[in-house]
Simulated assay, not measured.
Amino acid sequence: MGSIVVQAFMTLDGVVQAGGGPDEDREGGFPYGGWQSGYSSAEDGEIVPEWESRTEALLLGRKTYDIFAGSWGVWDEAAGGFQGELTRRYNRIPKYVASRTLTGLGWKNSQLLGPDIPAEVRKLRAATDGEIRVWGSTELIRTLAVHDLVDEYRLVVYPLVLGTGKKLFPPGFPLTRLTLVASRALSSGVLVNIYRPAGAAAT
């Protein structure tokens, strides 16, 4: 049995849009792309690589798939360091994409889910041994939450308020009770918080 793990870099006001770069996602005229810059610390180089070493599949919405396929899907696998390591891993593992508009996928080892996303994800979780990673994909995450299909939220929270942008938990997100199972403050002021659904068994 696999586990559905949502990972997100987010601001104090919950914005998850385009933290990595100015052109990552300009939808809605978002003006603050790349807001993560300036908060790096030595610990950053330990946390995400350790998390990603557990990733056995990616579960993505259409927009995030397009971003990932245009970056990890084309970057050089021979690159040094974490970028090369993660490029190799992401190319190797299966990618499952929730979309009502795509008819084909160009990134290798990618496949479209059927129209009943909750049922497809339940089958995927039952058939996967390890963590199924969700990045971005806010609309998909809302669908998963409605059907109690998120096993863990890993939230990297930056001491920054933007006041605009796509949020991980927007208005209308379903009532979700969570338990904080781990928290770590980095020297940059960033908090790394891990939550599981209230009542979930500890591991």
Rank of each mutant, 00 (worst) to 15 (best):
G73I: 07
I67C: 12
P94Q: 08
N91L: 15
A78E: 14
G70V: 02
R133W: 15
F169S: 05
Y96C: 05
T87N: 05
W75G: 09
L175S: 13
L175H: 12
K167C: 05
E139D: 07
N91H: 14
A126N: 03
Y90E: 09
Q83H: 11
T138M: 05
G114M: 09
Y90D: 10
L140Q: 00
K123A: 11
A79Y: 07
V134P: 02
P94W: 08
P159C: 09
A98N: 02
K95E: 11
I141A: 08
W72R: 02
V150I: 12
Y158I: 02
L113S: 10
P115Y: 12
G81H: 09
I67Q: 10
V156N: 12
R142P: 10
Y96A: 02
T87D: 10
L144Q: 05
G163E: 10
L160V: 13
L112W: 04
T103G: 13
R89P: 13
E120L: 03
A69K: 05
L162F: 09
N91S: 15
H147R: 05
K123W: 02
I141S: 03
R100M: 12
I93L: 12
K95G: 05
I132N: 00
P170M: 07
V150E: 00
Y90Q: 13
D129K: 12
L168A: 04
G81Q: 12
Q111C: 10
L155S: 01
Q111E: 11
L86K: 14
S137E: 04
E152A: 15
D76A: 09
G106C: 06
S110D: 09
N91K: 15
A145R: 03
T143H: 09
F173C: 03
W135K: 12
P170A: 08
T101L: 15
E131Y: 09
T103H: 12
A78F: 04
D116T: 08
T101F: 08
R92L: 15
D76F: 08
H147N: 11
V146G: 03
L140M: 07
G104C: 06
L160E: 11
G165Q: 07
I132K: 00
L160A: 07
T176Q: 06
T128L: 01
W107C: 13
P171T: 10
K167V: 06
W107L: 12
F82N: 10
F173E: 08
A98R: 01
G114R: 03
K108W: 11
V156Q: 11
G114D: 08
A78P: 02
V74I: 14
P118W: 01
V150G: 05
T176P: 01
T138A: 09
V134Q: 03
R92F: 15
P170L: 06
W135Q: 15
A98V: 06
E85P: 15
T164I: 15
I93K: 06
K167M: 06
R88V: 14
I132C: 01
R142F: 09
A69Q: 01
G84W: 07
R89K: 14
E131I: 15
G70R: 02
A78Y: 05
G163P: 03
Y90A: 14
P94M: 07
L144E: 04
A79V: 03
E120M: 06
G114F: 02
G70A: 04
T176L: 04
V74W: 13
Y158V: 06
Y158N: 11
V97R: 02
V150K: 01
V97F: 02
W72F: 08
W72G: 04
K166F: 13
